[in-house]
């Protein structure tokens, strides 16, 4: 079951997202993450969806998405070179010497502290899923993690290739 990242351009209207989410639950496909927001053309939204399945299932998912009337374009990013990014915001409880340790990890991971109180830091981190996981794992060794928020993956193909409406 390979991890597949799918990029979609859909109509920016109320029912569109629910049709896509509905399709996944209705046909028993899984969604690992899903992000959606309007594009520079406010009548369109861009969605990045991460799923997992046998090649035959992925093929059906692509076709079924294409079939939805509100969906304009569908592209399997993982089928060629692509870039994916995710943001996570991590709230860590830390006092005393722990604060330095967390700061060191923040440096190593190229993250940034974007909020702080005497008892905690909120860290922002960009990267792919592995990097975000690794950061959390490391921090956990020294401090208590209070909250983790991940944006879900957004992706784009590398080079000249583009998905346009």
């Amino acid at each position: 079951m390979s991890r597949t990242v799918i990029s979609l351009i859909i109509e920016n209207e109320s029912g569109a997202t629910s049709r896509i989410v509905g399709l996944f639950s209705q046909r028993g496909y899984n969604i690992e993450s899903l992000t959606v927001a309007a594009t520079q053309d406010s009548s369109l939204s861009r969605m990045t969806l991460v799923t997992r399945g046998e090649p035959r299932v992925i093929e059906q998912i692509m076709k079924q998405l294409n079939k939805l009337i509100n969906v304009l374009r569908v592209s399997e990013l993982t089928a060629s070179d692509y870039i994916e990014q995710e943001i996570s915001l991590v709230k860590v409880a830390c006092i005393g010497s722990k604060r330095d340790e967390v700061c060191r990890l923040v440096d190593i991971f190229n993250a940034k502290i974007i909020d702080a109180t005497p008892k905690m830091y909120t860290v922002r981190l960009f990267g792919d899923g592995n990097k975000l996981d690794a950061f959390v794992k490391q921090v956990e060794q020294t401090s208590e993690i209070i909250e983790v928020v991940r944006s879900g993956v957004i992706g784009i193909s590398r080079g000249e290739k583009a998905l346009r409406a």
């Binding site: 109320s14 029912g15 629910s18 049709r19 509905g22 209705q26 009337i69």
Partner: peptide, 13 residues
Amino acid sequence: IGVSRPVVKHSFL
């Protein structure tokens, strides 16, 4: 729209 969603080709509100 919600109730009929899985059994329509498309729908409009």
